[in-house]
């Protein structure tokens, strides 16, 4: 309710809210808006080489229009990277979120034992850096060290699965905890009523708990999609151990290579805008659904 008193108070607060928000807005401007603007600027530029390209004035930066975007969209290697990442991402999302959901439901089940111990154990990989997780699994995949025998885990056929395993291992626990804490907030009476009506534990999980979890599942999916599209750490860390991962395995790795190895900042900028666009498109559909429920703008 909006009373006159409240209006008066808001007036008295005056500049205070803006002062309190000043640090965040300054950081936003410097480290978010400015870099994004700079990326867009760079993506529209290219180097013009005059003469033999020697000497100081021979290379100048000129406006390139959408040429870099055309090159990025028409780049076969980038699309191959997208296909690899989509296959990898589908695998990771299905396994990680599926396992997270199963574990959350099991933790919330009626007669579970060892719940605390197993919950902490499954959440533990959250505290393990992606580099360390990839190193551990990477060594376990090496035939000379692997306890699983001589399986070619890092061969061209299996490397996607092996990499997906690292991500599933690292990400399941966090998603499980998000879902589980949501379940814990549900009043137990819901389930008692269902039990009195003769519902089984499985029936309760399928008909009551999963529908309750839908908004959180969507939210965790959005975040996982964003993270997966940008996969970089796992393939980069695994690369020294195998020759089946190219330096352009994922789109983000290609951006890194273009920017820092090839030195073509302009096409790197265009490619990173394309990646941003695709991850926005991928998550936007989910987010529209989520916005009202989970981000609860009040």
């Amino acid at each position: 309710m909006r009373s006159p008193k409240k209006g008066a108070r808001a007036g008295r607060a005056g500049a205070v809210p803006y002062l309190f928000l000043a640090p965040a807005m300054a950081l936003f401007a410097l480290f978010m808006a400015l870099p994004i603007g700079y990326t867009i600027y760079l993506s529209l530029r290219r180097t013009k080489v005059s003469g033999l390209g020697l000497g100081k004035g021979a290379r100048t930066e000129v406006f390139a229009g959408l040429a870099n975007y055309a090159a990025a969209v028409g780049d076969g290697e980038l699309w191959a990277g997208w296909l690899r990442v989509i296959a990898y991402g589908a695998l990771v999302l299905a396994l990680m979120l599926g396992l997270a959901l199963v574990f959350a439901l099991m933790l919330d089940a009626a007669h579970v034992r060892l719940a605390r111990l197993t919950r902490i154990s499954i959440f533990l990989p959250y505290a393990v850096p992606g580099v360390a997780a990839t190193l551990m699994w990477g060594f376990l995949y090496l035939p000379s060290l692997s306890p699983f025998g001589e399986h070619p885990f890092l061969s061209a056929d299996l490397v996607t699965f092996s990499m997906a395993n690292v991500a599933v291992w690292g990400g399941t626990g966090f998603n499980m905890l998000v879902l589980y804490t949501n379940l814990r907030a549900v009043p137990r009476e819901y389930y008692e009523a269902a039990r009195i009506d003769g519902a089984s534990e499985l029936g309760i999980a399928l008909r009551i708990k999963i529908p309750i979890l839908v908004p959180s599942i969507i939210l965790t999916t959005v975040f996982s999609v964003i993270a997966t599209v940008q996969v970089f750490t796992e393939p980069t860390t695994l690369r020294p151990l195998t020759n089946t991962i190219s330096s352009t395995w994922s789109p983000l790795m290609k951006v890194y290579r273009d920017a820092f190895v090839t030195g073509d900042l302009y096409s790197a900028a265009a490619t990173s805008m394309v990646i941003a666009g695709i991850s926005l498109v991928l998550s936007f559909g989910f987010l529209r659904v989520v916005k009202n429920r989970a981000f609860g703008e009040s």
Partner: peptide, 10 residues
């Protein structure tokens, strides 16, 4: 929603 790559390089 802004991918880290769009930020890190610039």
């Amino acid at each position: 929603l802004v991918p880290s790559v769009v930020l890190a390089i610039p």
